[in-house]
Design a protein around this nucleic acid. Structure first.
Length: 591
RNA sequence: GGGGGCGUAGCGAAGUUUGGUUAUCGCGCCGGCCUGUCAAGCCGGAGAUCGCGGGUUCAAUCCCCGUCGCUCCCGCCA
């Protein structure tokens, strides 16, 4: 057998290689057999090169070439030559040349594939995941994972240059009571005890600050046992970071620089910094969400005054009871049919609205829907809302939060339906001034809005207990195109302040001692002021790749029920394993 | 826990509203022809318990009930 060691890849042959003898390895991507001459598109991760088997080749070569099928893994030796002038393919990076095959070896054969390897396969996701190793051969997945690699590398490069240390924290940690459901790992050596997989390295990175590693980062795997969505699955990766002796502004600076560097390196695109900032209350008021998509304008308007002055009892009552009536002007939607408006109403109802009232704006004034309650005010309403003839005014009245959220969802739908979204833009925004606590109506108590270690803003320090609902935290989210990309805060490093927070959320000192004793203990030994943030790597890459789900940028993702169709995970374990772990299964209830 | 969508050859879809002979199309697969294609082309062929179970009916891919799987969303996700 002759030497068939790869000397070039399928992406790098150019006209400068003309006349050289090369050996390529790769997969048969496509074949075009003309009876005499035969073309093979040979593919590897670097690209595709056309190799040609000519009819006057040796009989053995012709025989082997005839055996080739899709995705056979082969080696070819041949001469790089120009294609005939008319046959140059300008669509292909290697389209000026081809390789005339002098030798061909089948390294391995492939069965008939469950789906074709294409730029982007039309096969259903379930099937793609079952044969993920084939799916990953597609150009789109190759591109996405390369992009992910570039983003991860750029993140490391930037942070290391900023003086950050990359430090790993444990994967088996203590289960914490707040937040998402933990994934648990039973402990064989300590019967009845469990590790938890980290929802984030939160406590450990704070301890690293106590230890004096004042700039830390980690590409951390995080685990949350909650239902999946397009932008979340049971395990994800965060660019986790924490810094000592910093304010929110320092964190913003680092993250803006980080995003700039990533965009530059991965997309070759300049990002404008600093990013816009919007207070949480304002975001809810204008966009009805704490992760607004700013690629289109459309904002919610206050409608309390017209509602209070109208004879529309439903709205009047809502205003009297301290609720809110919000308005959204759908531009040019005055022609919407009953059915189309009902469609929007469904969206509003999904988010808790009881209904969606509407009014059409015409040259004459207000028409249809609930317009009869507002005839006297029509002129001032049109002015207040900056509405134009042909527009459709949509109204939701409810508690402030529900009215905003529901109409915000309608805003998002309209943005998509009306094609208002500027798809090629990346609109970053910091959401700041989050409330520190939120009222838990079911249990009649205050809950931490994020987590218990976030610092209240200074001006609220004296009045924490008096009016927890009004306290803003030193909390911030980074949002891009309607996706929550990162979440962080300045942390509490004062044990006394920490105790006050525990007490407000009804967390006894005993309980705190059991759960976070080690952190409170650490804070007795000169903890530095510190804060941090954690951009989600999967979501960031998803945005950069312009994909709709993070599963498109994860090599081996789980499906929406947290399973992997490829390896059939999770799977049952045998009795012996359970016994060693001191576990007994309780069959699921049937009812 | 709740709501919407989907399930028809290996893959992607049509057909189901209004039940009726042999379930249609493209890709792939098999065979043949073909010396410049690049989604090659042309000719021929094979391939389907219409997700599964039950019901209604002379007759069910189609209607009804149940069930399973996937997917999108609400809840949940500090």
């Amino acid at each position: 057998m002759k030497e068939m060691i790869r000397t070039a890849t399928c992406g790098d042959l150019q006209e400068k290689h003309l006349g050289t003898e090369v050996v390529l390895n790769g997969w048969v991507h496509r074949q075009r057999d003309h009876g005499g001459i035969k073309f093979i598109d040979l593919r590897d991760r670097y690209g595709i090169t056309q190799v040609v088997v000519e009819p006057d080749s040796a009989a053995a070569l012709l025989k082997t070439a005839a055996e080739l099928r899709f995705e056979y893994c082969i080696a070819v030796k041949g001469l790089v030559r120009n294609r005939p002038k008319e046959m140059v393919n300008p669509q292909m990076p290697t389209g000026a040349i081809e390789v005339k095959v002098t030798d061909l070896v089948i390294l391995s054969r492939s069965q008939v594939l469950p789906f074709m390897i294409e730029e982007k396969t039309p096969a259903k996701e379930d099937l793609r995941l079952k044969y993920r190793y084939l799916d990953l051969r597609s150009l789109s997945m190759q591109k996405n994972l390369f992009l992910r690699h570039q983003v991860a590398f750029a993140a490391r490069e930037y942070l290391v240059n900023q003086g950050f240390y990359e430090i790993e924290t444990p994967t088996f940690i203590k289960s914490t009571p707040e937040g998402a459901r933990d994934f648990l790992v039973p402990c064989r050596l300590l019967p009845g005890k469990f590790y938890a997989l980290p929802q984030s390295p939160q406590l450990y990175k704070q301890l690293l600050m106590v230890a004096g590693f004042d700039k830390y980062f980690q590409l951390a795997h995080c685990f949350r046992d909650e239902d999946a969505r397009g932008d979340r699955q049971p395990e994800h990766t965060q660019i986790d970071m924490e810094m000592s002796f910093v304010s929110r502004e320092d964190v913003f600076n680092v993250v803006e620089g980080l995003m700039r560097h990533i965009f530059k390196k991965a997309l070759g695109r300049e990002l404008e910094v600093p990013f816009e900032r919007i207070a949480y209350d304002t975001a809810m008021d204008l966009y009805g969400t704490d992760k607004p998509d700013l690629r289109f304008e459309l904002t919610l308007k206050d409608f309390n005054n017209p509602a209070a002055q109208s004879d529309f009892q439903v709205f009047k009552k809502i205003v009297e009871q301290n609720g809110a009536v919000k308005a959204l002007v759908a531009p040019g939607c005055g022609h919407y049919s009953r059915k189309m408006i009902e469609d929007l109403e469904e969206t509003a109802k999904t988010y808790g609205a009881k209904g969606l009232a509407w009014i059409k704006v015409t040259e004459q004034g207000l028409e249809g829907g609930v317009s009869k309650f507002f005839t006297e005010q029509s002129r001032s309403i049109i002015k207040h809302l900056s509405a134009k003839p042909g527009d459709l005014i949509l109204l939701v009245g409810d508690t402030r939060k529900t009215a905003c959220t529901a109409l915000g969802a309608v805003r998002s739908k309209l943005g998509a339906d009306l094609g208002l979204i500027k798809k090629h833009e990346f609109k970053f925004v910091w959401i700041i001034d989050f409330p520190l606590f939120e009222w838990n109506a079911e249990e009649n108590k205050w809950d931490p809005a994020h987590h218990m270690f976030s610092m209240p803003q200074e001006q609220y320090l004296d009045s924490l207990e008096k009016d927890p609902g009004s306290v803003k935290g030193d909390l911030y989210d980074l949002v891009c195109n309607g996706v929550e990309l990162a979440s962080g805060s300045i942390r509490i490093h004062d044990p006394e302040l920490q105790k006050r927070i525990f007490s407000i959320v009804g967390f006894s000192l005993e309980e705190a001692e059991i759960r976070f004793g080690f952190l409170l203990e650490a804070f007795k030994y000169g903890p530095p002021p510190h804060g941090g943030i954690a951009p989600g790597l999967d979501r960031l890459v998803m945005l950069l790749a312009r994909e709709d789900t993070i599963r498109e940028v994860i090599a081996f993702p789980k499906n929406t029920v947290g399973a992997s169709p490829m390896d059939d995970c999770p799977s049952p374990v045998n009795q012996e394993q359970l016994k060693e772990l001191h576990l007994k299964l309780i069959p699921p209830k049937e009812d």
